[in-house]
Design a protein around this nucleic acid. Structure first.
Lengths: 341, 341
DNA sequence: GTCAAATATTTACGCGAGTAAAAATTTATT
DNA sequence: AATAAATTTTTACTCGCGTAAATATTTGAC
């Protein structure tokens, strides 16, 4: 175990250099001569010293932390996005801090409050959406360089990166109509703007193809989508609420619930012979390939979304926290044909 | 929008009080007289001031942050535990910071390094287990009050809280034997000690009941359990590797993969007439009730585990970072009978 | 109204670093 | 070797707040 060094002053002594030089080194190792860099790194092997984060950040106006806020971390979709974002932040020399609002407005507000206190270099925020405190969020975005992702809120933040629901939903509707009955749309009360956009995209797509849109709207609160999909799926099936045997769900988690309901009701799902129903989702949730049957869905471009969000934030940070203008980047989805539809 | 106040000095002026009093207030609002508290809170409504986190923590030896580290956040099991833990920390006036090792040793090491720099009041750590850097972890635990949960590492940390695999696995084995063929055990290379314990518990339980243990061990790396369960499940089914028609998986995610494989192979899963196979899991993963068929499993006691972990950490923190002795708390699992077995 | 107890103010120093300016030293160039 | 350029050292001040000690003020009890 190496000997602990309490502060930079002491470390400067044991490494035979002056404190400002050490300070420069930790700010950027390449800013000091090779020979002194070697001295420092040799000392670092012998002594256990790392600069005090709090003392460092006290003076810096902007720190090296980046806040990442998602609405619901128990959703592997967000876990996956967060994972990629974290990675890219680390690679760029930042320290990401991850927060989940757990679907609750009060928590999102709290998180943003304490995040502001941390003076982060920037924040990547997937807002609750409908559940967000709009005014508070606006204040926040004015103080802290923020890029929104996944769920857009008009005019908030320096940029938005997400999926193009008006491309992805028609893609799926087209596919379903081409290969069988036109789909009904299975949705719950929208927790965020995507859900709304998807419904509208569904209606548009159906009209364009000359079909009557059939929306099966069910009640259900919160972010326990599987639960809602299951419970309300059971009811919908019992009441013959699905006008056709093809159901497009507003997201994969809802589809997973519906799949479970259909299974329990003895309905065979899929596009083959003897199947009573086709079910499709949206997102290509990490678990979608392991449902029974595997879920046909539209894949969101995780990689592009996370990469682009981070890039956008870095741009903003370099531009002193203000983007020239607010850019919205929408990535197209890709059809993932599996067994369920 | 309220007027921004740069520091405590200035805030003291506008609220007509002295800085030390303000300092006391933020340390504990009840430590000042009601009348001054009111003054401060009135000023707080007019002016936008919150103390600088970094300046505060620079002097405090122990901060009010608590680190929460899990091995793999995209696993809803950990997401759920983390959620409960976070909540309890917040309620107790701490600021939890959540980190995921994403299954990688290097990342766990990095996280612990930067966590140490944050001088947290304590850390709740679910270690990678087999993948952890044992020596580094030991150093860490000596510096920072740490409570391990989920995966135990002998002698590390001030306490351990987890599930009692030697109770839960026999519970399931008994049930399966009582209601049908004795189970084989489906497992992959153990990423953490639980997997090992579960295998041993399975062997013990089978022997006790006078049955020959049948272990189906498959290859597979990392934390993509569903993927391994699926891929290797397909192979195992093709090769008739399951000695009996009942399979106990070392965890639910593996079971979900196997379920998908069985479905694809046209095997009907469940305990009823015409079923080819029974599949059981372990953990009661949040999605386990939505598989097709719903997964029979052993529920881990999420609530007790998270609550007890936090309590244990608080005890340690109050006892100045050192527990009298290292206590291991194991909670029993409960059988969750669903349709799959 | 008096006096002790409780609370607030004043004053002053410390924490661990960032950083700026001037002086001193090292390195590179010719 | 002389000189210019690059780097390091010295010195000193800043940041925002914790905290301790002495002093002053307010409060409550009688």
């Amino acid at each position: 175990m190496l000997h602990k060094i309490p502060n930079m002053e002491a470390f400067a002594r044991v490494s035979g250099l002056s404190r400002p030089t050490i300070s420069k080194y930790f700010h950027d190792p390449d800013s000091v001569r090779k020979s002194t860099r070697d001295k420092i790194e040799k000392a670092l092997e012998t002594y256990d010293y790392r600069p005090n984060v709090y003392a460092i950040n006290q003076n810096r106006r902007l720190t090296k932390t980046i806040g990442v806020v998602v609405p619901y971390l128990a959703d592997p979709f967000f876990a996956e996005l967060a994972r990629r974002i974290e990675r890219r932040c680390i690679d760029a020399g930042f320290s990401p801090l991850l927060f989940s609002s757990h679907g609750r407005r009060a928590l999102e507000v709290d998180i943003l409050h304490s995040l502001r206190a941390l003076k982060p270099a920037g924040v990547l925020l997937a807002p609750l959406g409908r559940g967000s405190d709009h005014d508070m969020l606006k204040d926040f975005c004015e103080d802290v360089p923020t890029v929104l992702f996944d769920a857009n809120i008009e005019g908030l933040g320096e940029a938005f990166v997400g999926s193009d629901n008006f491309q992805s939903i028609p893609l799926m509707v087209d596919y379903l109509c081409r290969t069988g009955e036109p789909p009904c749309f299975f949705e719950m009360p929208p927790v965020n703007p995507n859900a709304n956009k998807r419904r509208r995209a569904y209606v548009d797509a159906m009209m364009r193809l000359g079909h009557e849109p059939q929306i099966v709207h069910v009640e259900g609160e919160g972010w326990g989508f599987e639960e809602v999909g299951y419970t309300e799926g059971i009811l919908a099936i019992e009441r013959h609420a699905f006008a056709t045997g093809t159901v497009l769900c507003s997201n994969d988690r809802l589809a997973i619930g519906l799949l479970a309901a259909a299974y329990e009701k003895g309905l065979r799902i899929g596009r083959g012979q003897g199947c009573a129903m086709r079910i499709a989702g949206h997102d290509d949730h990490p678990f979608a390939r392991f449902t029974c049957p595997a879920l046909t869905t539209v894949a969101q471009d995780y990689e592009s979304i996370s990469d682009r969000s981070v890039d956008a934030l870095f741009d903003v940070i370099e531009a002193d926290g203000k983007a020239e203008r607010r850019v919205e980047t929408l990535f197209p989805g890709t059809l993932v044909m599996r067994a369920s539809a």
